[in-house]
Design a protein around this nucleic acid. Structure first.
Lengths: 209, 209
DNA sequence: GTTGACACCGAACGCTCGTTCGGTGACTCT
DNA sequence: AGAGTCACCGAACGAGCGTTCGGTGTCAAC
């Protein structure tokens, strides 16, 4: 009777299949528009079984969002370490990694952008703290660039917010089957970011100050 | 018995009070997280009465979203007409109006950004068409600026998307009681936009090309 | 002084929601 | 052989959902 029991839809087994299913569903109809029965169906599992892995629907959302944010921070931090020491190379690396995250992890990013309000107080605090950490990564690089004279922007904080938001929004419109590959887009947005902080091109040997 | 019947919470009477209440509620918990009973309570009305003004919950959302988009297009179009003929003045005017919309009409913008997925097929088509119209306004200005040599940007379409998205995101973080007044923010973002399209400053008399 | 439009309402319809309960079978350790 | 853990399940709980029905009172028109 246990014929076609093997995982047909779920990507992993158990916990991971639930997370994947929840992510897909919440991406389409949001947290409140997704029922535990929806999640169970797509994960090839019963509703009761979900509660073996998660203590509530809320916990599933928190898991998805904090995991995604941790990964985003890890990706951008890694890119920053691999970049050289110059502020422009660092900003470029950050933006590229940021855009790559929002294309390769589009569903996570979309849910993360939409469902802050669906988190309970504790979850929201955690997520906000992680976002601040992420923003700090960008801010440090831009502020150092301004100090060193590599960038020339009157309001670095606003520029940083603009850069972060514009990269974040990528997850709302980019399509993997669209005309623009993720890497291309990342390069273009990195250039836009450099323009926003008025980076002085390296090749022109104009002396600083 | 009809003592304190006067509108205490609802802003307008009837239809408008319902729209206001729905907007506030959906802003906090989204479309699916908002019940007709929630809307009725905040509008000081009964659930049944809502159905005298709207034929469904879906129609309320569509009304909110299309109305907001129409207003956004009207505001930016008006600003464009009032701006001079130069591409940089026009882009500046567009971005200022765009940011002003996303601060003064923050709740509409937030719901508009979040609830595309909650619209039915017909509503979604309408909204997408209006968004395209809005994007066209920006694209035309930037493309003309490039043609005339006022802007120098390799990928105008991506720059336009970046500009639009960064302005749109304002509604997710700006607070009316925060440190930055809407007008200041609008000015700063207009400058960022000009930097993104590599506008050549007017004051420096560098000859073009 | 009847008519009809209007704005509104209480109560109910069938349905779905998140969560819980009391299991069951497979597997490992001793 | 027995105990314990693990992953899973069917069925049910009370609550809340969007929507509909059959009204009620007010007011202007005729």
């Amino acid at each position: 009777m246990s014929a076609a029991k093997a995982a047909t839809v779920g990507t992993g087994n158990g916990r991971q299949a639930i997370l994947d299913s929840a992510l897909r569903n919440m991406n389409e109809r949001g947290y409140h528009g997704t029922s535990m029965r929806d999640i169970a169906r797509d994960a090839d599992i019963t509703v009761a079984s979900i509660y073996h892995h998660f203590k509530s629907k809320q916990e599933i959302l928190q898991d998805i969002m904090t995991r995604a944010l941790h990964d985003a921070i890890a990706m951008t931090r890694g890119a920053l370490l691999r970049a050289g020491g110059s502020p422009d190379a660092q900003l470029q690396a950050l933006v590229r990694a940021w855009v790559m995250f929002h294309t390769t992890r589009q569903l996570d990013a979309l849910v993360g952008a939409t469902e802050l309000r669906s988190l309970n107080e504790a979850g929201r605090r955690l997520v906000v703290a992680l976002r601040d950490e992420q923003e700090g990564l960008f801010r440090d690089v831009v502020e150092r660039g301004v100090e060193e004279g590599a960038f020339e922007v009157e309001f670095p904080r606003d520029a940083v917010r603009g850069i972060i938001n514009m990269g974040q929004s990528v997850c709302t419109w980019w399509r993997s089957d669209g005309p623009l590959r993720a890497e291309e887009l990342a390069d273009r947005y990195a250039d836009l970011a450099l323009a926003m902080v008025q980076h002085r091109p390296r090749r022109v040997g104009a002396p600083v100050s």
